[in-house]
């Protein structure tokens, strides 16, 4: 019986292993969403992003899981950089000229809880600004893999 189980698991392993041939584009500052021409509009374009980031930062400063990181940061700069970064990802007419994700977060000691909390607060800010749920998820799909550069704990 155990032998058969072994074979079963091995077979699944092979099938699953085959699926690992994935995009090697290791998200540094984010990949452009090119399969959705309208998504930048769904975020309200650049003006919309500015409002989302204002709300986002307010949320981050309220949440005890993220507050300690942002209260002493240059909040204005972080918001501006995030606007540019997201604008770029959403296929808007922007360039991101800020720091690379890995070095800027390297010494912050961010864990999974902090990371997920930030995503949650971003969801709240996007909801407040009426970004359609599916458009939100497309952005989050680009941001989520960045945990590899951001979460160090």
């Amino acid at each position: 019986m155990l032998r058969k189980l072994g074979i079963l698991f091995a077979a699944v392993g092979i099938v699953v292993g085959g699926a690992t041939l994935t995009s090697s584009a290791h998200a540094q500052e984010g990949v452009k969403i090119t399969d959705d021409a309208g998504i930048f509009k769904e975020f309200g374009e650049k003006a919309g992003l500015v409002k989302i980031m204002d709300d986002f930062m307010i949320n981050l400063l309220k949440d005890p899981r993220t507050k300690p990181f942002f209260e002493n940061s240059d909040q204005k700069r972080v918001k501006e950089q995030l606007v540019d970064q997201f604008c770029f990802i959403l296929n808007g007419p922007c360039e991101y000229k800020g720091a690379k994700m890995k070095p800027i977060h390297a010494n912050l000691n961010i864990n999974r809880e902090n990371f997920n909390a930030l995503v949650e607060q971003l969801q709240v800010a996007m909801d407040k600004n009426n970004v359609p749920f599916r458009a939100q998820n497309k952005l989050l799909a680009i941001l989520a893999p960045m945990h590899r550069d951001i979460v160090t704990k």
């Binding site: 698991f9 699944v12 392993g13 699953v16 699926a19 690992t20 041939l21 994935t22 995009s23 584009a25 290791h26 998200a27 990949v31 989050l140 799909a141 680009i142 989520a144 893999p145 945990h147």
Partner: peptide, 17 residues
């Protein structure tokens, strides 16, 4: 192995026994 939620740039699922 794998992470069902965060590894969005990979097709690899989260696998458990």
């Amino acid at each position: 192995f794998g992470d069902a939620v965060l590894e969005q740039d990979s097709l690899l699922p989260q696998v458990s026994i």
